[in-house]
């Protein structure tokens, strides 16, 4: 199907139309931070200010808090109740290319030997509509990781800014179905050409770069280089920001919320930056800070490539932007000793 376009003034028509079938989420500041929030039917103001969310869209698939099941005890023993089956279908409008890719990266873990029904249920139930970036943050480095501000990996439908309009392009079948809305008009060849230009302009705006050649090997060779890791970790305060808000981090903890003979089993996100991480089943083998910092870097740039042949970092820059001490993963990756 040929590409379509829509005038920016009319953009609200899209979520308005889609919300008949889907529960539509858009970027919003409503909660007090920037997060994907239920479309309220009017506010498309985000088009002016939105660059990326603080809370990654991962939250719609692997939420901060998730009820796995509830249980209660009666005279016959314990009873378990699963949460009600999946609600309405979800549509995320405005996901950035790095975050869409992050979901593709998370799929590798949750759709592996163990199939996680909670995560996968939401994934299968959700359509992703991407909007390409036009102004990268000074912490973005997606282009170093084979990604780009207008990359379409992982989205179903993609919008690219071409001035007055957005070019609207279906990437998957689910995306094609969205194209049937009446608010779209046909894109011309000139529009396609404009999209090419805008892609290149957007790419130029990503100013930070890293060299990821042989990074997994370099990290393996430097694993025991305590001096290096201690230096790199010195200013880290072991908070959970760079992991809990990283779109590709997925560690979780499981706890029961109990009251008398009933309760809810919840899973909530956990962080390998915390000294008490994994203390529940055993001890944390990474008691010193530098070991935890090393784990965070190696998990993304060494272990994940080993397991899934993919780097578990999208270059979204959240860990740099949001870190209270400006710990910068780009500088770390750039300074890993060659191991020679």
């Amino acid at each position: 199907m040929a590409d379509k376009k829509i005038n920016k003034r009319d953009i609200a028509k899209l979520p308005n139309e889609w919300c008949r079938e889907f529960s539509v989420l858009v970027p919003s500041r409503e909660s007090g931070t920037v997060a994907m929030t239920r479309w309220d039917g009017k506010d498309i103001g985000f088009l002016d200010w939105y660059r990326n969310t603080v809370v990654p869209p991962r939250d719609s698939f692997l939420p901060l808090i998730e009820e796995m099941f509830s249980f209660y005890k009666d005279k016959d023993g314990y009873n378990i109740e699963l949460p009600p089956p999946k609600e309405q279908k979800q549509l995320i409008f405005g996901i950035r290319p790095c975050d869409a890719r992050a979901l593709a990266i998370l799929d590798m873990t949750f759709n592996d030997g163990y199939q996680d029904p909670y995560y996968l249920g939401r994934r299968q139930n959700t359509v992703l509509v991407g909007i390409g970036c036009t102004k990268a943050y000074d912490s973005c480095f997606c282009t170093s990781l084979g990604n780009s501000p207008t990359d379409t990996t992982g989205v179903d439908l993609m919008l690219t800014d071409i001035g007055e309009d957005f070019l609207v392009e279906a990437i998957t079948d689910a995306g094609k179905e969205l194209l049937t809305t009446s608010s779209l008009s046909k894109a011309t060849e000139a529009d396609q050409a404009r999209a090419k230009v805008s892609e290149e302009t957007a790419r130029q705006k990503v100013t930070r770069n890293i060299d990821i050649r042989d990074i997994a090997q370099k990290l393996r060779a430097s694993f025991e280089d305590q001096d290096f890791w201690q230096k790199v970790a010195a200013k880290c305060i072991s908070c959970g920001i760079c992991t809990l808000l990283c779109p590709t981090c997925y560690c979780f903890d499981i706890n029961d919320e109990m009251s008398k003979a009933q309760g809810v089993r919840c899973r909530s996100l956990d962080s390998c930056s915390f000294p008490i991480y994994t203390r529940m089943p055993m001890e944390n083998p990474r008691t010193e800070k530098w070991r935890r910092v090393r784990n965070k870097v190696c998990h993304k740039y060494e272990f994940y490539p080993m397991l899934f042949d993919a780097i578990a970092c999208t270059g979204c820059g959240r860990c740099i932007r949001l870190c209270p001490v400006n710990w910068d993963i780009i500088q770390i990756i750039e300074s890993v000793p060659t191991g020679a």
């Binding site: 909660s31 007090g32 809370v55 908070c239 920001i241 915390f274």
Partner: peptide, 29 residues
């Protein structure tokens, strides 16, 4: 409303020089 969005990253505690307990009450089991 403010605390609903807390992600319990503990950055507030860890950035605080007055919070120096080896074992914080939030981590007691």
């Amino acid at each position: 409303k403010e605390l609903e969005r807390c992600i319990r990253c503990y950055a507030c505690r860890n950035a605080c020089p007055a919070c120096y307990c080896q074992r914080c009450f939030v981590e007691e089991t």
